[in-house]
């Protein structure tokens, strides 16, 4: 009985990987086809193909990057910025992505004035920005395992050495730091609901109703943080700390 289960467990990944392999092949072909369309200047068709790959609930930095490029070439700054941000989250160290993100954001009709970085979060972001969340998570995990190996040596196997203790303290400190950074990154990238204005006309109201006054006129490509939700309305926080309410269909979450 136990042996049969073991066999099954061993087979499952093989079967799954066969299926994944077949899908990967068709996706790669679709990706190449979309790139060719892009090269021919048929950006709208390229967009359709890139989006079709993404519709399978798979993603990659290059995919988002190329989609962003296609949107940019179509003049859709909002969706270009959106996809560059998604690409950057997957590969924060890719210079092309950050360059194009910056370039596209330069084309935003409206630039928010007085964008200030919190000095502390600025330092933290400068450390973690180029690192992927997964990398941080695995570093934390490695330190965690190392720490527990040391604990096991000390308390499970009763090793009593001075170096063991010092190493444990050092690794504990590193582990705490790595965990904090991982948590911050996770919050920043996934728990914080970032969104990009993708609308052509983006009125931001002082409350969740079109009967209220307009707080400001947004423009596609502006990046906001969704801090609250009320029905079909998002309470958004702009990068310069201006706040307002916008209809949820006018923004796209990163």
């Amino acid at each position: 009985m136990a042996k049969r289960i073991l066999w099954l467990l061993l087979l499952v990944p093989v079967v799954i990987s066969f299926g994944v392999e077949a899908d990967a092949q068709t996706r790669r072909e679709a990706f190449d086809q979309a790139n060719r369309l892009f090269q021919d200047g048929r950006y709208d068709s390229a967009i359709v193909l890139y989006e079709r790959i993404l519709a399978d609930r798979v993603e990659s930095a290059s995919l988002y990057f190329n989609l962003g490029n296609a949107y940019f070439k179509q003049g859709d700054i909002g969706r270009a910025v959106l996809n560059y941000l998604r690409a950057e989250r997957l590969d924060p160290r890719d210079d092309d992505i950050s360059a194009n993100l910056e370039f596209a954001r330069g084309y935003t009709r409206v630039q928010m004035e007085g964008v200030k970085l919190n000095p502390i979060s600025g330092v933290i972001e400068s450390i973690i920005d180029p690192v992927r969340l997964n990398t941080l998570a695995w570093i934390s995990s490695l330190l965690f395992i190392a720490f527990f190996v040391l604990l096991s040596l000390r308390y499970g196997l009763d090793f009593r050495d001075a170096w063991l203790r010092r190493s444990a303290v050092l690794i504990l400190v590193l582990l705490i730091a790595a965990s904090l950074l991982t948590t911050y990154k996770y919050r920043h990238d996934y728990l914080t609901r970032r969104a990009v204005l993708t609308c052509d006309q983006c009125p931001v109201y002082i409350g969740p109703s079109e009967d209220l006054d307009v707080e400001l006129q947004g423009a596609p490509g502006l990046v906001v943080e969704i801090v609250d939700q009320s029905g079909d309305w998002y309470n958004v926080l702009f990068e310069n700390k201006r706040r307002g309410w916008i209809r949820s269909d006018l923004v796209a979450e990163v």
Binding site: R28, N66, D96, F103
Partner: peptide, 8 residues
């Protein structure tokens, strides 16, 4: 903008 990537 920088050109599209060929590798997915």
């Amino acid at each position: 903008i920088r050109y599209i990537k060929q590798d997915m």
